[in-house]
Amino acid sequence: MSRIRPLEPPYAEEIQRSFDRIMKGKEPLLLFRTLATSERAWAKFRNGSLLDRGPLGLRDREIVINRTTALAHCEYEWGVHVAVYAKHAELTDEQIDATRNGGLSAPCWSGAEQALIAAVDALHARATLDRIEFDRLREHYDDDQVLEILMLCGLYRTVSYVANALDLPLEPTARRFPAAQRRSPALQEQS
């Protein structure tokens, strides 16, 4: 059980409408039900969402989110995104596994995806990009896309903090992290 008791149905009318908009008729995630216990936290979270049709394609967006949540050891959010979006983003099992256990040098990534993963890794490790990392990212992404990448990393680092600190149990339909023995040295160092 979450460290903060989530809302249970029936939900207040406004909360139900917001759940319906986000979940499109499915049961709301435990994360959403827990955040919605605070009107302010729920409003801030909903207003900060970057899951709309932004300047990044679905595949790039999901690589950023999956890598960010994996680096933050947030199996809850990583698993939800893999279960819901990986197929639509055309991520292979090898690529899904590499968001957790691999690095930018995994052979399954294109040059643009390697630059994307390098940026996520640098932001996670140092909260900045050096000139080379930024320039490499700019070789593949325009200004709007770069800003979206930076915002996604920050937002999903925050989501990871919340889900991890609340000790949210994994959603029943979410994917689990791949086996730990296949973790990359970079992720082992961060443990």
Rank of each mutant, 00 (worst) to 15 (best):
R5P: 09
P9Y: 07
E13W: 01
I15V: 11
Q16P: 02
S18H: 13
F19N: 07
I22L: 14
L30K: 04
T37I: 00
E39K: 13
A43M: 05
F45P: 08
F45D: 05
N47T: 01
G48Y: 09
S49Y: 02
G54L: 13
R59G: 09
E62I: 00
T68G: 05
A70Q: 03
A70S: 00
C74N: 13
G79T: 09
H81F: 04
E90P: 05
L91V: 06
L91Y: 00
L91F: 02
I96K: 04
D97C: 06
A98W: 14
T99S: 07
N101H: 13
A106I: 02
W109E: 12
W109C: 09
W109V: 02
S110K: 07
S110R: 09
A112Q: 06
E113C: 06
Q114V: 09
L116Q: 00
L116R: 01
A118T: 05
A119W: 08
V120Y: 10
L123M: 13
R126H: 11
L129P: 00
R131P: 05
E133M: 03
F134M: 11
V146I: 12
L147P: 13
E148V: 06
E148S: 15
L150F: 06
G154P: 01
L155Q: 09
R157Q: 15
T158K: 04
V159I: 11
Y161W: 11
L166M: 04
D167T: 10
L168K: 01
L170Y: 00
P172S: 14
F177E: 00
A179H: 12
A180D: 11
Q181M: 12
Q181D: 09
S184K: 08
S191E: 09
